[in-house]
């Protein structure tokens, strides 16, 4: 999908107008941002916005997230385990210490991959 983020009042207003006028090309509205369908129409709308508002419009293309492809089992199970922790106030760093779960630093240092292998 195409992610459009606006950074000024005027650009935000134009985005609203565009979203109202082209509902069929808008996948989701997120306040001052929106996701457009990945079509030439979506691109056209995004480019029009940037043409009008320059640096106050950011256009990005998003990639679907598949955790089975982009992160290892270790990361998935760490997330699941942390969310079912006993004490909600335990920070992740403390939770992970002394276990097989990766430390916050290890997580930060690891890029996403395409095949799920670490």
């Amino acid at each position: 999908m195409l992610l459009v983020v606006t950074y000024s009042r005027a650009a935000r207003q134009t985005l609203r107008n565009v979203c109202n006028a082209h509902e069929e090309s808008v996948v989701r509205r997120l306040g001052r941002a929106a996701m457009f369908e990945e079509s030439a129409m979506g691109a056209f709308l995004g480019l029009r916005l940037r043409e009008k508002h320059g640096a106050d419009v950011q256009l990005e293309r998003t990639v679907p997230f598949n955790e089975f492809e982009t992160v290892g089992e270790e990361v998935r199970s760490a997330a699941a385990a942390y969310e079912s922790r006993e004490h909600p106030s335990t920070p992740y760093a403390k939770f992970a210490a002394g276990t097989d779960h990766p430390s916050p630093d290890a997580l930060r240092g690891r890029d996403l991959t395409e095949d799920g292998r670490d």
């Binding site: 983020v5 950074y7 000024s8 009042r9 640096a55």
Partner: peptide, 15 residues
């Protein structure tokens, strides 16, 4: 650009 956009975001917040 991220930093420049942070600045723009700040402007929007102030506005």
């Amino acid at each position: 650009a991220r930093e420049a956009r942070d600045r723009r975001e700040e402007r929007l917040r102030l506005q």
